[in-house]
């Protein structure tokens, strides 16, 4: 594994492009935005770097904390639903016959081949008042009414006087639904990776030794799949937290998430320093959460043994 030590030249040659890429397109722009977050607007296009903390102080106002809390809740709920939905999917794929696995995985990845915007508009066409779900329900309603009429109960209006379409769009439920739809593959793929590595005989052993299905899942499968679960949670939660397109297009009058506020600072409100401060506040919070996780992970084996 340490062969690169014998061939340092090759190693450095291969290391240069990704380093330049990372520096030029990630670190430098990110650094600029970080510097902006300590700036003040001077006129329309100029930002003066005054190293003031005013933008962070403003970002900590209750108004924005409330929106951040709401975004955490929406993203957290999305992540939880993704986990619950992803587990059966992952079980199905990893216990499927080998020749089916690539096809099933492909089906999971397939939505990525379509642009997010197009997928969201497709979702609108499904969910809206005159959308496919309501068309289907109306069809059943009509059918039900015809049957009732046929058996002589038509006048009682058991199903209501007219079909009432469900209001599925433009509310927080629609946003969470949209976020789950978009982020599900982020949860399925890492879970699948760790399930594939999982020794299936462990499950058999657990069941043979008399553990129930639920006990097997929580005491054997879940601990063994933990790395996959954790990375799934992280890479689902972070982009969900930063979504602005989904709440914008599917949300109602109160579905704004923190990323919508940030987007506006860089566009219509034209307040880059404040937008930058809000973004970095989120980033610090994420780093904090990740650091906490690794601290907890370090502490956990001891507590397990202690119990």
């Amino acid at each position: 594994m340490e062969t690169w030590r014998r061939n340092p030249l090759v190693f450095w040659i291969f290391l240069v492009p990704p380093t330049i890429w990372l520096a030029a397109f990630f670190l430098v722009p990110l650094g600029l935005i970080w510097v902006f977050s300590f700036g003040e607007k001077r006129g329309l296009v100029d930002i003066e770097i005054t190293w003031s903390l005013a933008n962070y102080v403003r970002a900590l106002e209750p108004l924005y904390l409330q929106i951040i809390a709401k975004s955490l809740w929406m993203a957290g709920l999305t992540t939880a639903i993704c986990l619950v939905v992803a587990f059966p999917v992952v079980f199905a794929i990893s216990f499927a016959p080998p020749r089916w696995k690539p096809i099933l995985l492909l089906l999971v990845i397939l939505p990525f081949w379509t642009n997010l915007l197009i997928r969201t508009y497709a979702l609108i066409a499904v969910l809206r008042t005159r959308g496919y779900i309501n068309f289907t329900l109306e069809w059943f309603w009509d059918g039900g009414n015809q049957i009732l009429t046929a058996v002589g109960l038509g006048d009682l209006q058991l199903l209501g006087a007219s079909f009432q379409p469900l209001q599925l769009l433009y509310n927080n439920t629609a946003v969470v639904f949209g976020l789950v739809y978009v982020h599900l593959p982020f949860m399925v793929l890492p879970l699948y990776a760790s399930m594939e590595r999982l020794d299936k005989s462990m499950i058999e052993a657990s069941l043979d030794l008399g553990a129930s299905q639920a006990r097997t899942f929580f005491s054997v499968v879940a601990p063994l799949a933990k790395p996959g679960i954790v990375s799934g949670l992280i890479i689902t939660f972070i982009p969900a937290m930063g979504s602005f397109l989904t709440p914008n297009l599917l949300g109602g009058t109160d579905s704004q998430m923190i990323a919508n506020v940030i987007e506006r600072q860089f566009k219509s409100a034209n307040d880059w320093p404040f937008g930058a401060a809000l973004s970095f506040l989120l980033m610090y919070a994420t780093f904090g959460a990740l650091a906490m996780r690794s601290l907890l992970a370090r502490g956990s084996p001891g507590t397990e043994h202690g119990a």
Binding site: K41, G43, L63, I67, D254, Q256, N260, D271
Partner: peptide, 18 residues
């Protein structure tokens, strides 16, 4: 100017957060 733009954006943020 920036002051009014900020007033409007904050009002808009509050409207949606309300």
């Amino acid at each position: 100017g920036a002051k009014r733009a900020r007033l409007m954006d904050e009002a808009w943020t509050r409207i949606q957060a309300a």
